[in-house]
Simulated assay, not measured.
Amino acid sequence: MKPFALWVLTGCLASVVFASEQIPKQDLSVDQIVEKNVAARGGLDAWRKVQTMIWSGHVDSANAPAPDLPFVLAMKRPNKTRFEVTVFNQRSVRVFDGKEGWKLGPNGMGSATPRPYTMDEVTSARDEQVIDGLLIDHEAKGIGVTLEGADQVGGRDAYRLAAKLPSGVTRHVWVDAQTFLDVKVDRQVRTPLGQTVVVEVSYSDFRSVEGLQIPLEIESGAVASEKKDKLTIDKVSLNPSLDDGLFTKPAAPPMRGKSVSIDVDASPTLPGAGHPTP
């Protein structure tokens, strides 16, 4: 065989081998993948019944002054969130009411004043799909989903889907080819220094909560960084009573004593403006 023909044949065989490693065994359409994902997570009807949700647990972050900081994340449809983290008996709070956001944290003078979200934070928070994520009921949310290909995620085959949000932003969702649970998503965020970075959010330790599959461990961080923020969820409450006042911006409360707080602005991967929903 001539060298050129041998090179072409070798290249073709390599392409076939590479493709077989990249594409999961099941040849499914994007609609079938989404349908299986919704079923694996508990079903569309069950998720539609969830109007509020609370996570409580602890967070480890490179920006935190101490490990295992307790947090509470409250979510209410259509797009309200309240994230509180406690450090040394002081609270830092980030709240989005569906239109505007504010953040509150004690300063060195012993007082705290609510600060508005930046424009980037508001844009990111408006794009979040609280409670159930990007794929469940995606058509009703105005999200277009296409199948881009497949990758290895944690040593397992996963479908890579592109989700185009009503804002025009495109995010990617990786769905495990065996369990059909969404195991990773990505998004672009702007850091406090004005840099745009891609953040990956990985989901693991799925558990059944009243028939819904919810990840109890969530890691997030910039793709180029080895430092990751980790949320460990100890308790999930479905449909608790959440008054809208919980998401209303308060007047600045007086605070006394020495104040130490986690700098939630320093980490684009912590919940708040673009929190890691399931």
Rank of each mutant, 00 (worst) to 15 (best):
R171E: 04
L104A: 10
S167A: 13
T170I: 04
M109A: 13
R156I: 01
G133V: 12
K164V: 05
I131T: 00
V183S: 06
S124I: 08
L134G: 02
P116E: 10
D186M: 10
N107E: 05
T123S: 06
A163M: 07
K184M: 12
G154Q: 05
G155V: 02
I136D: 00
T146Q: 13
V169M: 07
A163N: 09
V122H: 08
G110H: 11
E148V: 08
A125I: 10
G105D: 00
G168D: 12
E148C: 07
D157P: 01
L161T: 01
T118Q: 09
V183C: 05
D157H: 14
T146E: 08
G155C: 12
G168K: 10
M119R: 06
Y159H: 03
W174Q: 02
A162C: 15
M119E: 15
A177C: 08
D151K: 12
W102N: 01
W174A: 02
K164F: 06
P166K: 06
V185R: 12
L165Q: 13
I143Q: 05
H172A: 08
S124R: 11
G105H: 09
Q178R: 01
T179D: 02
A125N: 00
M109F: 13
G105E: 05
M109L: 14
Y159E: 05
G155A: 08
A162S: 12
D132I: 14
I136P: 04
P114K: 14
A150S: 09
Y117R: 04
V169D: 08
D176F: 03
A125Y: 12
E148H: 02
G149Y: 13
D151Y: 08
D127G: 03
